[in-house]
Design a protein around this nucleic acid. Structure first.
Lengths: 244, 244
DNA sequence: TTCCTGTCTATTGTCGACAGCATAGAGGCG
DNA sequence: CGCCTCTATGCTGTCGACAATAGACAGGAA
């Protein structure tokens, strides 16, 4: 919802190019589960599928590896980032630190004015509605939309670049662990303290709320992951899943 | 000094490839001032200079843009990242947060044992010696070497990836603002509180010391920058410097 | 003179091809 | 019967070429 069309890495406006389209396509495919974690991404078949040259696909894969959705091993090809508990821990602990920092400076530097606050409130409303809908993908989108609306006003370009990648990886984890399945409305309430602190312009409280929210979400996701792998010891070999 | 040969982004071992060599070469050239901030990096001349194909150079430029040393505008080419005060602020505030986090978890999780502590002490010794030498590039290398020795033990791969880029950008800023010129030995002492806190395994104190050190360094660098641009209002047009 | 417009050149985006390495499978040996 | 070696295949790394675009320059109109 935030970006206009594709939302790619380079700078800020970046004229539409074929590579960016392929990036967007593959990104969506990965986040929708078309290419499950660990699946091999060979350049030639992909090039045929998206009707582009191998060079273009190669560039797209490299961009996706910047974001963290793809792991590239030199001379051995690219695979969809596999979901290890360690990676989950790293993503959530890092997001906790970065997003807490983002809210703090957004508030202390007065970057959240009426317009930005309205966007945050709108994102929160969207979050509530999506949770009632039951559509997992929409829920993820709304969740990340709220976090993005909160963090973006900080204006810290480098930080926001890194957050884009981390949030994309978070999407992947949430999608594959069916994170919202158990308690969707609890997920809405988990964002309330952040919203209230922002309304009060309480920077430290907002930062702490953000940090605690992301850390607790990370811990809950880890539990879901461990339960899931315990239930499902054998992996399907349909897509040549290989761990690293 | 830390890495074996090149130290590139992809994963961790990555067999040596031509692109990584070009990346290392260009990285060094940028950090040594061969290509000053804002200089245009055209693919064809570069390819001839490094005796590689345009594709290879193109990949290298993309990798350098991941690190943050190069800015790529679609259909308009690549330029060496220009030194704006905002970018300096962003780099240092972000490093302050990330490296403080890194030391904290390195200490709380007991990742700094005798071996890691020895490396940190060695890096500090190297820092002292380099500051006496007066060689700017060696000083920068030693400074970053100390920070790296401190942060690496945390084992947080994603965080370390991001730090690699931020530290490379820091190198560029320090080199071009002649940061150590005024007070080299003060720079050594600025690292002392961090080292002492690590010796005591005082995680919070170490984190605070790291944060304060980087923030104060960032502020001093900003002052240097503003003074420098005040003294030098007209830019040399020899390399077609263009701001964004 | 100054601004707009059309052309023209240099540079990037995209493409397919060749060569080298990595993995898998068959065959031989202990 | 199991392990090692050698071959075979598929993939990636690297390359140069073509086409499209952005910026520069010259020319004309207000």
């Amino acid at each position: 919802m935030p970006e206009a069309k594709s939302g790619n890495a380079p700078s800020f406006d970046s004229p539409p190019t074929l590579v960016s389209a392929v990036v967007a396509h593959l990104r969506d495919a990965i986040l929708r589960g078309v290419y499950p974690p660990g699946a091999a991404l060979h350049e030639i078949p992909l090039a045929r599928q998206v009707s582009a040259s191998r060079t273009t696909v190669r560039d797209a894969l490299r961009t996706l590896s910047e974001i963290g959705l793809v792991t590239i091993h030199a001379r051995r090809g690219a695979v969809v980032a596999s979901m290890s508990p360690q990676r989950a821990r790293e993503i959530f602990t890092l997001r906790a630190v970065l997003e807490a920092f983002a809210v703090r400076i957004a508030l202390t530097e007065g970057k959240i004015r009426s317009r930005e606050l309205a966007e945050i409130e709108a994102a929160f409303g969207q979050l509530q509605r999506s949770m009632e809908s039951g559509d997992t993908y929409a829920m993820i989108e709304a969740d990340m939309g709220f976090h993005w609306a909160v963090c973006r006003p900080c204006g810290h370009e480098i930080l926001l670049d890194q957050l884009r990648g981390l949030q994309a990886q978070t999407r992947q984890f949430i999608f594959f662990t069916k994170f919202y399945a158990s308690d969707a409305e609890g997920e809405v309430e988990a964002h309330m303290p952040i919203l209230m602190a922002i309304r009060d312009s309480a920077s430290e409280r907002a930062a702490a709320a953000m940090r605690d929210h992301i850390n607790s979400a990370g811990e809950r996701l880890l539990v879901s992951m461990l339960e899931q792998t315990a239930e499902e010891p054998a992996r399907s070999e349909t897509t040549k899943t290989r761990e690293v």
